[in-house]
């Protein structure tokens, strides 16, 4: 690539933890900056220019203004990367989608609800074409680095599709089910190096469902282990309500 790729970083509705994680590449940040020109990053800088080669976008879309802005970003970006669970699959914000939006607004703002327009929380891909996904809540740093170098090389990054179980087995982690806890690992995409199960926690499903998830088999697993299917389903909705609502219909 002749000129350095121009990179822009944006955030929509979310916690900005993924952006913070990008600032947390302390050991790699200067090398990364050597390969690209960061041209827009509200959280870290003032400047606001025109076009860019790669746009990293965090957060889900939840207001009419978001929709306008993401279309504008898509128009100006050659490659659009969705970063983190909110941008990739709607994430935690999409939990509100399982209830009527008016009810939710009223519950929070009461009679003042009209002051604050809102929409169901959507992943970027339901409004614009997304070229690459970096999953996780927050985004997985090793994966972001891989995607980053791949894009600098001008190639399509490979998105992990196998379940978290693969990485647990590689790390020889005791199965979370053996520890008596619900774990969403069997139906959740890996690529995170099984971070949570490796430190004694259960998989919360933050990286989204595997392609063609066998949810019926997942129910059987829960029943066999004497765990609550209802509770597991609730947990699965934590990051994946948008996708699950889609599977329902």
């Amino acid at each position: 690539m002749a000129a350095k790729p121009r990179v822009a970083i944006f955030d929509f509705t979310g916690c900005e933890g993924c952006e913070l994680n990008q600032l947390n590449f302390e050991n790699q940040l200067l090398d990364m900056l050597g390969h690209v020109d960061i041209v827009e990053w509200r959280e870290a800088m003032d400047d606001r220019p025109g076009e860019y080669d790669i746009a990293f976008v965090e957060g889900s879309l939840s207001t009419p203004d978001c929709i306008k802005r993401i279309n504008e970003i898509r128009r100006r970006a050659k490659v659009l990367v969705a970063v983190g669970a909110c941008a990739v699959q709607g994430g935690i914000n999409s939990m509100k989608n399982t209830r009527p939006i008016e009810e939710v607004r009223e519950e929070v703002y009461g009679k003042d609800k009209y002051l604050f327009p809102t929409l169901p929380a959507l992943p970027l891909s339901s409004v614009v074409k997304v070229d690459v996904n970096v999953r996780g809540c927050p985004m997985t740093q090793i994966e972001f680095l891989k995607v980053f170098t791949a894009l600098v090389m001008g190639k399509q990054p490979v998105e992990p599709t196998s379940a978290v179980c693969v990485e647990c087995k590689l790390k020889e982690n005791e199965c979370v089910y053996e520890r008596g806890m619900i774990c969403l690992g069997p139906v959740t995409r890996g690529g995170c190096d099984a971070q949570c199960p490796s430190v004694g926690q259960y998989c919360t499903g933050c990286r989204g469902l595997v392609p063609e998830p066998n949810l019926k088999a997942m129910e059987d697993i829960l029943v066999t282990h004497g765990l609550s299917v209802n509770e597991a389903w609730k947990r699965l909705h934590l990051y994946n309500s948008h996708e699950l609502e889609g599977l329902k219909s």
Partner: peptide, 28 residues
Amino acid sequence: EAPRYFEAMLKGRSFHEAAIITSRICGI
């Protein structure tokens, strides 16, 4: 900033999840 309606997210959630959910209010 767009409101996110964490209220809708917490309702009926188990105590195991309260901190997981509320920590997503803000990554910083």
